Amino acid sequence: MTDFLIIGGGIAGASVGARLSHLGQVTLLEREDALAFHASGRSAALFETRYGKPSTMALSQASATYHHEANGGVLSPRGLMLAAAEADRDRFEADMATMGLDRITAQEAGALFPILDTQAAPLVGYHDQAWDIDTDRLVQNFAAEIRAQGGTVRTRAEVRHIDRTATGWRVDIGTERLEAGTIVNAAGAWVDRVAHMAGVQPLGVHPLRRSMARIPAPEGMDPAAWPMIFGPGEDWYAKPDAGALIVSPADEDPQPPMDAWADDMVLAEGLAQFEAVMHYEVTRMLANWAGLRTFAPDRQLVLGPDPDDPAFVWMAGQGGYGFQTAPAASRLVADLVAGRPPEIESEIVAQLVPHRLRG
């Protein structure tokens, strides 16, 4: 019998498994062939602490030291730029204030992002307090911590059935049956399905598709040092990626839990927005993909034991912030499970625990 059975092997499951491995025996289950297969493997992976809901920003800020220092750190400099046309001044100014960006000149913008058309987008803000996250290294660091504490990480392990027992849970994986004291639901877009199998009230989460296109860098240019760039209100964004650029239309289209794929028309619209403010015509895509970002009804993370059954623990609703919040979010779950005073302020904890969604 394992103490903690983690369902889901993305960044949510790996991080919370690592934290809980110091409290008891952990078994982590991932349905796919590898960890971080779905949303976690399709992330733009930026660490920027002044983005999202106040509770999300608090988790991001509390994760900074871990990201910078733990296991040698997983961050590398990137920077963040916001570019807008004059017609979008109101949204530009709102984003500037929210994200704490500094206004820069056209000349400065051109030096940072050489293909930006500063006549089409004369409003530009920037700061250097944004970093790329080495997502694979972070996931593997957490998985290694689970193993170092005597835990088990299993792939190709699809949960088929869950029963409540007097001492915890009985979980069927194909013809194999596991027993656990506590289930941790870190199944991403599938968290409500896992809850339903366990006889626990679902959260009412909604998975939303986010699409991405990978395009060649302009001929003769190396974008490695360019910042990530956003349109106002996050209409679109682009980011250097291994000698190329990734561009997203920042779509949020409802989808059932599935192995998502990008819609060609949605990608075309996003690329057109990108081209409208660039000295660059996109003539081909190198690749495209989509992932599901899963949100609770109030678009805040859901962390901690279920109020109706504390042996069922949520690590859910990351909504695209899973990597940047993982160190603090997983620590909070472990604190709540262990009955320790959380490091996060109590008013923030109240915005994150499942109890808030049980009206």
Rank of each mutant, 00 (worst) to 15 (best):
A143S: 01
E69G: 12
G168A: 06
R137E: 09
E48I: 14
T56L: 03
R156K: 03
Q119L: 11
G100N: 05
D134A: 14
I146D: 01
E176N: 05
L116G: 07
G125D: 09
G168C: 06
G72C: 06
L82A: 02
S43M: 04
W131P: 08
P122Y: 07
T65W: 13
T105V: 01
T175H: 10
F47T: 10
T135K: 06
R160P: 01
A120R: 14
M57G: 08
A121W: 04
K53H: 15
L138A: 06
T65E: 15
H127V: 09
S60V: 06
A143D: 00
N71Y: 12
E158I: 09
E176G: 02
R154H: 00
R147V: 11
S55H: 05
G168N: 06
I115R: 04
D132R: 07
R103I: 15
L75R: 10
I115C: 04
A84G: 11
H67V: 04
G150T: 12
V74C: 04
D102H: 10
R177D: 12
L101Q: 09
L82Y: 02
T155V: 03
V159P: 01
D136V: 15
H161V: 09
E179P: 08
A144I: 08
A87V: 10
W169M: 03
A62Y: 06
Q129V: 11
E93A: 11
D90A: 14
A109L: 10
Q61K: 14
L75W: 09
E158N: 07
M99F: 13
T175S: 12
G125R: 07
T65L: 15
A87M: 08
A87S: 12
A97H: 11
R89D: 00
P114C: 09
R91V: 08
W169N: 04
E145G: 02
N141K: 08
A85F: 02
A45F: 08
H127S: 13
G151V: 05
R147M: 09
Q61G: 11
E93P: 12
R91K: 13
A97V: 15
R103Y: 06
I133D: 07
H68A: 14
S55E: 14
F142T: 01
I173G: 00
I162R: 01
G150Q: 05
D128W: 06
L101M: 13
P54I: 05
R156Q: 06
D128A: 13
R154K: 04
S76E: 12
I146C: 03
V74F: 10
T98Q: 12
I173Q: 00
G125K: 10
T118H: 03
A97Y: 04
A180Y: 02
G110C: 08
S63W: 04
R50W: 00
Y66A: 15
T152E: 05
Q140R: 15
A148Q: 14
A130Y: 07
T135A: 11
M96C: 12
G100D: 02
A120L: 06
H127R: 15
L46K: 11
A64Q: 15
S60T: 11
Q129G: 08
D163G: 04
A111L: 06
L59H: 03
A85M: 03
A109C: 10
T105N: 02
L178K: 04
A109M: 08
E69H: 14
Q107V: 03
A45Q: 10
M99G: 10
H161A: 10
K53F: 12
A84S: 13
V159Y: 00
V139L: 00
T135D: 01
G79H: 03
N71E: 13
Y126H: 13
V124W: 02
D117C: 07
A85K: 10
A120N: 11
